[in-house]
C-alpha cells in the first residue's frame, strides 16, 4: 500500500462534491457525466452549449492542475487498443442502459439518498472488482 494517498483523495473528492452541489444549487442539474455526454448524441434534445461548457471545464480543470504543478505528472494506461475499444463500448452502453455512472449514481444519487442509485453503485463496484480480479489473478497471472 505504498501508494496510499488518503488526503489528496479526500480533498479531490471534496472538490467533486462541491462541484456537484454548485451545479445543483445554481442550475438544478445533476452532475452525471455519462448523462451529459449522452445528451451530446441527441440532436433534438437541445442543451448543447451547457454540456460542451461543462465538459470543457472538466478538461481545463485537469489542465490547470497540471499547469499549476500538481504531483500527478502523467497517467498510466496499459490496456491494448482492442481492450480500450471493448471497455469503452461497455462503459458507453452500460451507463446509457443503467442511466448513470460513478458521478451520477455514485455521488449525486447517493447524496440524494436514492435507493436506485445505491443499487447501481453496489452493482458496478462489484462488477468492476470482479473484472479486475479475473483479469489480473485468473487470466493475467
Amino acid at each position: 500500500m505504498e501508494n496510499f494517498t488518503p488526503y489528496s483523495a479526500l480533498a479531490g473528492g471534496a472538490l467533486i462534491g462541491a462541484s456537484s452541489a454548485l451545479l445543483l444549487w445554481l442550475t438544478g442539474r445533476i452532475a452525471g457525466i455519462s448523462g451529459i455526454l449522452g445528451g451530446l448524441l441527441s440532436l433534438s434534445g437541445g442543451g448543447l452549449a451547457w454540456r460542451v461548457l461543462f465538459l470543457a471545464g472538466l478538461v481545463i480543470g485537469t489542465v490547470l492542475y497540471r499547469v499549476g504543478g500538481g504531483p500527478l505528472t502523467d497517467i498510466t494506461i496499459t490496456s491494448s487498443t482492442p481492450l480500450l475499444i471493448v471497455g469503452g463500448l461497455l462503459v458507453g452502453f452500460g451507463t446509457a442502459l443503467g442511466r448513470g455512472c460513478t458521478s451520477g449514481h455514485g455521488i449525486c444519487g447517493l447524496a440524494r439518498l436514492s435507493p436506485r442509485s445505491l443499487a447501481a453503485t453496489l452493482v458496478f463496484m462489484a462488477s468492476a472488482a470482479v473484472t479486475v480480479f479475473v483479469a489480473r489473478h485468473l487470466v493475467g497471472s
Binding site: 479531490g12 473528492g13 465538459l55 471545464g57 481545463i60 490547470l64 458521478s103
Partner: peptide, 11 residues
C-alpha cells in the same frame, strides 16, 4: 462546476 470537477478528478 466542470472546472471544479476536473480539478477534483486530478487532485
Amino acid at each position: 462546476s466542470g472546472l471544479l470537477f476536473g480539478l477534483g478528478l486530478a487532485v
